[in-house]
Amino acid sequence: MAEVLVLVDHVDGTVRKTTAELLTAAARLGEPSAVFVGAGFETAQAALAQHGAVKVYRVDDPAVVDHLVAPTAEVLAHLVGQVSPAAVLLPSSPEGKEIAARLAIKTESGLVTDAVDVQPGEGGGVRTVQSVFAGSYTVTTSVTKGSPIVTVKPNSIPVVEAPAAAAQETLTVPLSEQATAAKIVERKEKAASGRPQLTEAAIVVSGGRGTGGDFGPVEAFADALGAAVGASRAAVDAGWYPHANQVGQTGVQVSPQLYIAAGISGAIQHRAGMQTSKTIVAINKDPEAPIFELVDYGIVGDLFQVLPQATQEIQARKG
């Protein structure tokens, strides 16, 4: 069975949930081989084994880590040449998509980004499903050229546990001069909020213009549910919440089990970032707000009344 390469998404060895999703998808196409770049392999190995990585290619050359996407693309291109994988799967993060882009040109392989499903193609290759035009269309695509390269959106693939060996194979790839031309000269880690990552969270609570700048009730409600906190572009542009939390076309695209929009009207820019959520709830004063067209449950009302009451009720139910 042909190998399927999965680029591991991790922070110093702590493997992100997207990687388990990619390994699960990889097992549908062939034999999953993880590609681990950076420090912290010992921490990562167990998580990779748990989700089906038969092999782990390990690259800890600091030159790969200190530079932007180009060196990782060279590492993957080297592996593609070596093992002719049935597919290469990467996370749909900005880095993942850019590595995929360079890899596609280097290896002359078809590329699909932001897939929400990945299956074997009928006549070989890979068949993907994407959600496009702000989630208003579903597109099915087959990739047959080269070693199909697919970036997969977080929260799209239900994770299956499949214990495997995760046998390590250390890899040294000589990098070109060009690969190290863009250098990361400074990195400031963001302070941990204690809340789940926006793209991975099962529940997301977002606030918009209707918060008037006070995200207190939104955050308290999110914490009662163990949710991540998002914000609309209007709230971010007003300086009320960090851009990193912006849900929408120019921010983060999320697809959680439950999305709650508080004081957000639901402009196309916002819908593009959340329309594929499984269950959608909205609280808004304006009964005509377009967000209500999307909801499973909506409350026409003041979020400053509704959210604190709901927070209290949830805490009471949890005891």
């Binding site: 590329l111 208003s136 597109v139 099915t140 999307l294 449950y297 009302g301 509704v306 709901a310």
Partner: peptide
């Protein structure tokens, strides 16, 4: 290098329940 096999309009979401808060909306 990729072939689109099909395109489907996403079925409209089934209309959900929208209620007006009259004091018990949070509950």
């Amino acid at each position: 290098w990729t072939t689109v096999e099909g395109v489907q309009a996403r079925p409209p979401r089934a209309a959900g329940e929208v209620v007006t808060d009259e004091g018990q909306g949070g509950q």
